[in-house]
Design a protein around this nucleic acid. Structure first.
Lengths: 132, 132
DNA sequence: CCGGATCCCAAACGATACTG
DNA sequence: CAGTATCGTTTGGGATCCGG
């Protein structure tokens, strides 16, 4: 990435450049977000347009309410999505993607596409590996 | 992705098309791999060239031997990386990326780049959020 | 409808020690 | 050098109930 082959970044302009390979670099936080299993799917959905809470819940199979609300809160904190509540009764809440989130989403949907396109090769490799 | 707005894929050719939003679709396996915290970093390193075990260990700060060998084994099973042992003494093992792994790596390094480029915006958003 | 609070289990992860 | 084995801790995440 920044400085292949080294463990700490050089300093090209101002302060230490971020380097995901460095243990305590905050960029690791971003990669950790992708570990949050649902972030990828939420980003993909919201990049198509705003969604209400239960709407998202239905569209993303298998997610528990707790995980969804937790994940949405984290993503809001990270500035990836926005949240707007309408004082209807019962209350309506709408989540939307931010410009920042959209740039990440564009990268992330490519991973999803890759998964859909190459899953068969992966499954074949697994079968072959397990045959030994 | 495949069929936005629905929960199950249509069947264009042969069998059900993969759909990451579908709960039990195997494409979820791929996304789960990215949850393996070290996969991204290993892919990035190996896409630069082959590495020996301890070489990788040194280049990826903070990884435990156990996690590294576990993760490498999974990735080999998935067909993302190759493993070659040389009967030297002591034994030498070299890991390299496969053509399949390389296509995924190209997507994944973009995420890493995004992290390095946008981390400040994320940190700022967090600070702003926490101020409330 | 949109969540928060609580409980609980399984999996991930890390540290250490040991082996071919 | 390149792992495996074991143990203990931490975290993710699902189920359920409750409240605004």
């Amino acid at each position: 990435m920044s400085t292949p082959g080294t463990t700490e970044g050089t300093v090209p302009s101002g302060h230490a450049s971020p380097n995901v390979f460095c243990e305590h670099c905050p960029t690791r936080l971003v990669l950790d977000r992708l570990s949050d299993k649902w972030v990828v799917l939420i980003l993909a959905r919201l990049s198509e347009g705003p969604r209400r809470f239960n709407q998202l819940r239905r569209e993303i199979e298998g997610v528990a309410q707790k995980m969804l609300s937790q994940t949405l809160k984290k993503m809001e904190r990270d500035g990836l999505i926005g949240r707007q509540a309408f004082a209807t009764v019962p209350v309506t809440v709408e989540y939307s993607i931010t410009p920042l989130g959209l740039t990440l989403a564009s990268k992330v949907v490519e991973i999803a596409h890759w998964a859909e396109e190459n899953i068969e090769q992966v499954l074949a490799a697994q079968a072959s590996y397990d045959a030994n």
